[in-house]
Computed example of a mutant assay.
Amino acid sequence: MTRVVLVTGASGFIGKRLVVSLAQEGWQVRAGARDPEMPDASGIERVAMPDLARPADWSALLEGASHVVHLAGIAHAPGTLPDALYSRVNAESAGELADQARGKVERLVFVSSVRAQAGLTADHVITEADAPAPTEVYGRSKLEAERLVAASGVPFVVLRPAVLYGPGVKGNIASLATLAKTAMPLPFGGLDNRRSLLALDNFASAVSLVLGAKQADSETYLVADAEPISVAEIVTAMREGLGRAPHLLRVPQGPVKRILKTVGREAEWERLSGSFVISPAKLMGIGWRPVIATREGIIAMMRAER
């Protein structure tokens, strides 16, 4: 029997890779996006997705679907959007989809974020046992979405991924890659803090596992590559992927922090200099194994973009 999985947000950075991966594994993928233009691939049906800024009827997209992966939403964009829009698009729409999927699908996988659980840094290894403590509206909207999905009665799994990377990456990893592409020496040689990242392919394999794993029902899992990596190691790997030497300088970090604070980029410094280590042990306990190590994944990402 053909398994049909509806993937919302299928045209985004994560969704494009996920739908191809699931199709290659034998799923019939219904790829939902506001702009349903997708790469040609066997097993992928392109469908238009409703506007999440207002209540929507999901019945046509759910018709015949056995599973759902809900990726669609507003990405982390601090200070640029009203809180009410985050709540509407990220939380309320997820709850509505879950309500309408109840009784129709075998499982809904809700893709949340580690930001639903923690802020930018942590002084200990983060696990699912830690009480959720989001520090800004994006994380709070994701946590509320988790609550609404769980309350809907639909069979569900929640994934809280770390920051993802891969070809076409955006956000802070893209900014770091832009710096790595320059010829200038960078003052990151002394940044030995550890941070967890997540390769796109590792994320796709996690979704594949929890779509069918019976023991995953009603569970929440953090998802990250097996080993954390320092910022110095990230930039070194990026430049190796570009065929360059690292050119990292060990400089006092106080002046760097003050400069970034002066230009309003203090949050970027916190991401660079703070530790943020996530344990994927719970997910690995049900059989998940990351297929890509972070350093090799970053090298491959940069080679793909050369």
Rank of each mutant, 00 (worst) to 15 (best):
L62I: 09
P78R: 07
D99P: 01
P50V: 09
E25V: 13
V89D: 05
L52M: 12
A10D: 02
G12S: 13
E25C: 14
S21C: 11
Q100R: 04
A84R: 14
E96F: 00
V20H: 03
A91Y: 09
A94S: 12
R115Y: 11
R17E: 13
D83Q: 13
S11C: 04
R88K: 12
P36M: 06
A84C: 11
F13H: 02
R107A: 05
L108G: 07
L97V: 04
P82I: 06
D40Q: 15
V125L: 12
V20Y: 06
T80C: 12
L62K: 03
V125Q: 04
L62R: 01
A122N: 13
K16P: 07
G43S: 05
L52S: 00
K104F: 04
D57L: 07
V109S: 01
G43T: 00
V47E: 04
V20P: 01
A122W: 11
G26T: 10
L71K: 02
V111F: 01
F13I: 07
L71T: 07
R17L: 12
V111R: 07
G119F: 01
G119K: 01
V69P: 04
D123P: 10
L97M: 04
A53F: 02
G103R: 02
E63P: 09
L22I: 08
A72K: 03
P36A: 04
D57H: 08
R17N: 14
T127P: 09
G103A: 09
G43R: 04
A23P: 00
P50D: 05
A75E: 10
T121W: 10
A60Q: 13
V69S: 01
V20S: 11
S87Y: 14
R115G: 10
A72W: 01
A65W: 02
N90H: 07
D40A: 15
L97E: 05
E37I: 14
A94K: 03
S112M: 04
R102A: 15
L71Y: 06
N90W: 03
F13Q: 09
